[in-house]
Amino acid sequence: MGLRQTFKDEAVSKLPLRPVLTLPPDGTVRQAVALMKQHALGCLFVVDAGGRALGRFTERDLIRQLAADPGVLDKPLSQVMTPPESCIEVGAPVEAVFNEMKDLGRRFICITDENGRMVGLTGQKGLMEYIAENFPRQVKVQMMQSKLYMDDREGA
């Protein structure tokens, strides 16, 4: 089966999912940075007491905010978050994630279950991992870091 067909046939649930990080709207940017750093993840969601998404805060937002106001770290997230974007259901094909990423330039895409609850986060990295996973022979055999030439001559 070709990669193209795999994209159409397999569900989003096959993608490697990352945890959904959440903070309440009165959490500060400083807390958000610490949490994102701890999980090495560039996106978190601002949720109300019932777990409903009110907004998101990403690395991109952090850079915009720092550029605009160096003292942004102590501001509450409710002042700096961006509106949450649409999510994709676990049953949708992998192609749906791919299209969102290609057309809208989205880096993170949240995945919801049938009841609309956020169950994971995927995006550009998840998709690259998926391609590498489904394509092991050609992709995985590539050397990680190689130069075009050798530093030292081989042999005599």
Binding site: Q124, A132, Q142, M143
Partner: peptide, 14 residues
Amino acid sequence: PAKAVNLMAVGGFR
């Protein structure tokens, strides 16, 4: 391009 995919996926370099 396959090598680039590998570096992004396995190495995690965006």
